[in-house]
């Protein structure tokens, strides 16, 4: 096994399981649609709330996708093979997360113009929304993957991962929505984006090691 052959196999599996990614995106759209339907569909309410709605829906959809990341590998024993492969487990996990991120977030970004129209998000906010999604979502993946690895041996672990990981997502949601609101109000927002970037970088450094510990403890 080499790092590149591992990455190729990860992409192949993601391609064969494209229905799962598609489901995550549908879930995302449905959650977004709940807000205009359930609360208020007037632009007066939606325009200022759009950033928060998109981010909350994105967080849920991403956590659903991340939660099952190791399930199949755990069942068929390939997770065990990663541990004994003689390659660096944190690096393998990093590659896996990057592959997963590309598969989930890129389609999400493609749908954003449509959704921001539906939520009456002003132009000024849209650019910043895309930027926050690009630099904020990596930290969601890196934090979530720790929870996924910890609960991989539990049959019904989805709810537990939600309970465990969602509190950690709060800062990302707060920084992102504040940045978008600041942009809508014409205020400077680069400091908030820098915070998001810092969180993503920090989780990128810490999470693979924590996840590797969790994976090793889970496969035994």
């Amino acid at each position: 096994m080499t790092y590149s052959s591992f990455l190729v196999s990860e992409f192949l599996v993601l391609w064969r399981r494209k229905q799962d990614v598609f489901n995550a995106l549908l879930f995302f759209i449905i959650v977004v649609a709940l807000f205009p339907i359930g609360i208020n569909s007037s632009p007066d309410f939606l325009a200022p709330a759009a950033a928060g709605i998109v981010w909350c829906a994105a967080v849920l959809a991403i956590l659903m996708a991340v939660e099952s990341m190791f399930k199949e590998d755990y069942r068929d024993g390939s997770l065990e093979q990663l541990v004994v492969s003689g390659l660096s487990l944190p690096l393998l996990i990093l590659l896996k997360v990057v592959a997963q991120w590309l598969a989930v977030v890129l389609p999400l970004l493609v749908m954003m113009p449509l959704l921001s129209e539906m939520l009456y998000l002003p132009r000024s906010g849209f650019r910043v929304l895309i930027m926050t999604l690009l630099i904020g979502t990596p930290s969601l993946f890196f934090i979530g993957v720790i929870g996924a690895a910890l609960t991989v041996s539990i049959k019904q672990g989805a709810m537990l991962v939600m309970l465990l990981i969602l509190p950690f997502y709060l800062p990302v949601i707060i920084f992102s929505t504040l940045a978008i609101k600041a942009a809508q109000a014409g205020l400077p927002y680069s400091g908030l984006l820098a915070m998001l970037l810092a969180m993503s970088l920090m989780s990128l450094v810490i999470s693979p090691f924590m996840t590797a510990i969790a994976v090793k403890a889970s496969v035994n």
């Binding site: 934090i143 910890l150 950690f168 800062p171 504040l178």
Partner: peptide, 19 residues
């Protein structure tokens, strides 16, 4: 693992909530 991750995150959570 989760306690350590929590400890690292707690100041950030706190800061973000104050913000």
């Amino acid at each position: 693992v989760i306690s350590v991750v929590g400890l690292i995150n707690l100041p950030i959570i706190k800061y973000s909530v104050v913000l």
